[in-house]
Design a binder for these strands. Structure first.
Lengths: 323, 323
DNA sequence: TTGAAAGCGATACCAC
DNA sequence: GTGGTATCGCTTTCAA
């Protein structure tokens, strides 16, 4: 691709020394004549020599790198998680190779197929069945985040928002909200976030209503529009995540609702961007950077030969201004 | 670290074949008996065998990976650039190793020192002097983004917002704004974005005023508060970037200004989050994902042996609602 | 179909 | 100080 590779031997030949000497010069070992070293370094530079990271890695058995597979880096939730993971990885001197699958199953597959040969372990949000993932990553440590059904093969990080959602509903009810809806995600089955909502509503003998939403601002807008069309008396809304909530809030205001006076909005995730909107978004908050950090920890354990386990991160109600 | 490594020979011994046969089985080559293959695959799995990516990479001289060094992944500007880079890299089947230096010079140095042995080229936002970067990356292709003074050693991507800023000032002036200020960044020297602003103001014989701001929402808030304290008659503000603008807009409203009626706000970058705030943020827009894509292109050229060049991305005024 | 042997590019432990 | 040699783990001819 980039022409013929310049090896350590080329440098040696050109500098008139053996290639072991070149290695010494390059790695700043002691036992070498200063002038020889300089000469070698100079010729190496002239020739544009660059050591092969593979050859080097082969002999020095250190250096760990982790693949981080994310559906969409532009979604701030994933960015926050990634940020936490990068931070935790740095502390261990690990390298993180990031892949954005653009919410696309095909790209997820192709990523899976190429990631295996590049990294020592994988962390990711996957939509493929476990069997498929296992097939592509055979033997390699894998940590899945946010997947709700867990097999024993992979490390796993779950979010437990049950108490947080109950607290959210309690808060809304205490504020006199009568008609509390939910914008869930738009997959085949209802999310566990919806389950928590449904149960909390049931406990309080409230009737809810739900609408699926694509996970984007626009998705939230559309879903909110549909929701208000179906239920004009809605006075509070809980959403699958903050991105949807922001869209929903925006749409509610477009349709003449004041937030929070006419319409209370509570998201899920507790992202930093929730502070940028007006009013600041209340949310069931996940410690997103912690999620990334715990994922790295789990990888560390798997790499050390321990068996996969499930970590649970609790999410808690955080009130800002929208409810 | 993780105990003794299981090699291809271990698998071979255990399966009662030569190690070349194991290789065949693993790589799905044709010339092998189906039952043998299955047996090998099974024992490999049992033993928990995982091929060494280094040994494999050494032999198959393909696979390129790029280091992407970013000051702060939580800043949406960098996220957008990263997203563009990841996308472009995927099209070439390149791997991207991402490093977040947390706006910290020390972390930038340590990143620089570890990145060299892991990747084939580097893209990044650096604050270190070119000489330092050169030292750590000797010989390796490097593309710098956004650095304003350019040496010949590195590829470079510049943003040209001159016309965009002039258009912004023109727009504000046409709207009857009299007192147009700027919130610049808070480094030693004024940014070129400020220069463009100053020149545009001069051309129109308008007197401006400037205030430094830290690159965060809070930084924008503080700077806007200080600015309004010093110049209560301000009726428009241009900012170094969108993040600052969002903070500034928020603060302006806290201090009783209506946006855009009393105070027009124009940011710089044109980030997607500008659409989430109320009113949507007008901005001098950079095609951020394009920046990432062009960086990858430049790396491609450097890797192919071409000499470094400077790419210029033009930024243009994009009106949304805040001005 | 399978096994033997030759590298890939670099490091490390020896002698010299 | 410097060079020889083994070695890292794997893929790929080339014989058998």
């Amino acid at each position: 691709m980039t022409g013929k590779r310049i090896t350590i031997r080329d440098v040696a030949r050109s500098a008139g020394v053996s290639y072991q000497t070149v290695s010494r010069a390059l790695n700043d070992k002691g036992e070498i004549d200063v002038s020889t070293k300089q000469r070698v370094l100079d010729t190496a530079r002239e020739l544009g020599y660059r050591p092969s990271r593979f050859a080097r890695g082969l002999v020095r058995q250190d250096s760990t790198s982790i693949g981080l597979v994310i559906p969409n880096l532009l979604n701030p939730y994933f960015t926050e998680v990634a940020s936490g993971a990068l931070d935790a990885a740095r502390k261990r001197d690990w390298h993180v190779v990031v892949y954005d699958t653009a919410d696309d199953a095909g790209q997820e597959q192709s990523t899976l197929s190429m990631v295996g040969s590049q990294v020592d372990a994988v962390i990711g949000y996957f939509s493929q069945p476990d069997a498929v993932i296992d097939q592509y990553t055979s033997g390699m440590p894998v940590v899945q985040i946010g997947r709700e059904d867990v097999t024993g093969r992979f490390g796993s990080i779950q979010v437990d928002g049950e108490d947080g959602v109950h607290a959210a509903i309690a808060h809304l009810a205490a504020g006199g909200r009568r008609r509390i809806g939910m914008l869930d995600y738009d997959y085949d089955e209802p999310s566990s976030r919806y389950q928590w909502y449904a149960e909390a509503m049931r406990e309080r003998r409230l009737t809810g209503c739900v609408m699926p939403a694509a996970q984007s601002i626009e998705g939230g807008q559309r879903a909110m529009a549909a929701m208000l069309e179906a239920h004009p008396d809605l006075d509070a809304i809980l959403t699958y995540n903050d991105v949807i909530a922001i869209g929903a809030m925006f749409q509610a205001r477009l349709l003449g609702r004041r937030v929070p006076a006419d319409m209370a909005v509570i998201g899920f995730d507790g992202l930093a961007i929730g502070n940028m909107v007006e009013p600041p978004l209340s949310s069931v908050r996940i410690d997103t950077r912690q999620v990334g950090a715990v994922a790295i920890d789990q990888v560390g354990q798997l790499l050390a030969g321990q068996r996969p386990e499930v970590a649970v991160i609790r999410a808690e109600l955080m009130l800002r201004g929208s409810a």
